[in-house]
């Protein structure tokens, strides 16, 4: 019984943080922070898949979320940050 409650608690924490991460990623205007949060989101997602007995998916998510997707988005974030900085310089 306690195990069940603990598991439920685990689920709850996992999901609340997951949603919190997603919200933070979505709300962050600064591109690199958004990407970092998204990568963290991917990591959390992998934990969710692991929790739901989907190791195949967790593997793929880990490889993509932390690896490729993250790297791709980081490159884009770098560009975006540079563009923002240029805009900021051009503005005043």
């Amino acid at each position: 019984m306690t195990q069940l409650v603990l598991l439920l608690l685990f689920d709850a924490v996992l999901l609340i943080t997951l949603l919190g991460l997603a919200l933070a990623a979505v709300l962050s205007p600064e591109p690199r922070r958004a990407v970092m949060l998204f990568i963290a989101f991917g990591l959390w997602l992998a934990l969710v898949w692991a929790r739901l007995h989907a190791p195949d998916v967790a593997l793929a998510e880990a490889a993509i979320g932390a690896g490729l997707g993250g790297a791709l988005m980081l490159a884009a974030a770098r560009r975006a940050a540079r563009a923002r900085r240029q805009d900021a310089e051009a503005e005043p």
């Binding site: 195949d56 593997l59 793929a60 490889a63 993509i64 690896g67 490729l68 790297a71």
Partner: peptide
């Protein structure tokens, strides 16, 4: 998954 790891190596 294997391909993704190879891709990560490329990255």
């Amino acid at each position: 998954q294997a391909g993704a790891l190879l891709g990560a190596a490329g990255v």
